[in-house]
Amino acid sequence: MSALLEIDQIGISFGGVKALLGVSLAVARGEVVALIGPNGAGKTTVFNCISGLYHPQQGRIVVDGREIQGLRPHRVAQLGIARTFQNIELFKHMSTVDNLLLGRHLHMRSGVLAGMALLGPYLPAAREELRHRTRVEEIIDFLDLQAVRGERVGNLPYGTQKVVELGRALAMEPRVLLLDEPAAGMNLEEKQDLRIWIQDIVALFGVAILLIEHDMQFVGDLAQRVVALNYGECIAAGTPAEVRAHPEVLKAYLGAEAVA
């Protein structure tokens, strides 16, 4: 099975700080790969390189046979890559529905003039709004967000905001979904819901998911493969059980003395 997202030896440094030193990984359609590692290992930097916020100085990032390193974020998004953020980046003055509708941005067409002329339900801009609104409501049903549909997302509890962010990424109908600590700050019940949603997303839409997560239980339940980073380098890769038992991983998390 050829990989949908393939990262090949990417490296990036900020001034003298080498954040990533030749990181490689691959995610196939319908696969969940987890990226783990201690704080500062470079996990989020990998995400930022993929989504075009950073431009890696070495290596290649390939999506479906197309190199994307160096593209600007909205161009990357056009290729079907959606993400969530570690420290929630929602449009906090907008409602849940509007946040998700923004996720439909790439699938909509109406420009300034069409938007201004929206007068009745039969004009193109309004018809387009309604069509995409239907899709958004499907996602709202899927993620159980009905109760907060019209709520300003800035007022929602943390766990719910994380779900809205997942919903916005889903509304983009991505081929690759990058989830940056989706379960952080969630209680047990919310984590279970999230796990089932992620499994459903993979099963229903065949999305490739790359996941950063610290909760090893959560990772073990979801991911087929795990890649461990430390100081910008891959230190281990394999099944969750293999990586959890890998001496380098133990050393990174617990220190050399604890392993010895």
């Binding site: 974020p73 909205h74 959606a82 980046e89 929602l90 449009f91």
Partner: peptide
């Protein structure tokens, strides 16, 4: 409005 609230998220959403 998306640009106002979070330009990073807006650009990553296309």
């Amino acid at each position: 409005v998306a640009i106002r609230d979070s330009d990073i998220a807006a650009s990553c959403a296309g």
